[in-house]
Design a protein around this nucleic acid. Structure first.
Length: 220
DNA sequence: CTCCCGATAT
DNA sequence: ATATCAGGAG
């Protein structure tokens, strides 16, 4: 497990690599962000943006999503995958927004998590990106990067990863750190071919060291 | 834990 | 062919 000083070094290096990391899901308001993040489960943000480009022209309000049939909404998001669950959740979410929140998106993580299809990660993203609440959403990238580097333990749950990051990172840096860890995981410390040879964190990366050693054995 | 699930990279 | 993608619900 890394100490605070080592984590500081990692964050500084990742900041140099991705100084402008930010939410890549296109949205014009909190409502569009909730829909976009809900759709993004097990799907690339590139594909989500492709779909929402058309979706957000057709559906502007919660009422709009309830005005069409479930089948029509399914077709409009079909290319995303998991589309039956997501269409059902969007409708349920819109119903609750209208009934309980005056058609507006609630601002707190606790209220957000009650919405259909909105779990801990999505609630954290919306609270942080749309409402500037301090939060660190742990998605597949943040989890993988944190575990490879040794910021947390391999066996940690996503909640444990989130708690470790919140403990070790100053609260004012939560939002930027969150996005930079995602960019680092998405474009450098990738799931398949992590670019360890050119990684500035290689010398203190547990997984990186292991991979480099293995590569040496193969070449020998 | 399993299921949901199409698009894309490898 | 298969792993992976800004996960969540039952």
């Amino acid at each position: 497990m890394m100490n605070k000083k080592q984590i500081r070094f990692c964050l500084d290096e990742i900041t140099k690599m991705f100084p402008d990391a930010e939410c890549e899901l296109k949205h014009a308001n909190p409502f569009e962000l909730v829909i976009a993040v809900l759709l993004s489960a097990q799907c690339t943000d590139v594909l989500v943006n492709k779909v929402t480009a058309e979706l957000f022209k057709k559906y502007k309000t919660p009422e709009d999503y309830l005005a069409v049939s479930l089948e029509e909404l399914q077709q409009d998001i079909r290319s995303i995958g998991l589309y039956r669950n997501k269409a059902k959740n969007i409708r349920k979410l819109c119903e609750v927004l209208i009934e309980n929140y005056g058609g507006e998106v609630p601002r707190t993580k606790a209220e957000l998590e009650k919405l259909a299809g909105v779990g801990r990660k999505t609630a954290n993203v919306v609270a942080s990106v749309a409402f500037n609440e301090p939060a660190i959403a742990v998605d597949t990238h943040v989890e993988r990067v944190s575990k490879r580097l040794g910021i947390c333990r391999w066996k940690d749950s996503v909640v444990q990863v989130e708690e470790t990051l919140m403990r070790k990172v100053p609260i004012k840096e939560w939002s930027d750190t969150h996005h930079r860890l995602i960019f680092f995981g998405r474009y450098h410390c990738k799931a398949r071919n992590p670019e360890c040879p050119t990684c500035p964190l290689l010398e203190l990366c547990r997984e990186g060291q292991k991979r480099m050693k293995k590569e040496k054995e193969v070449n020998a």
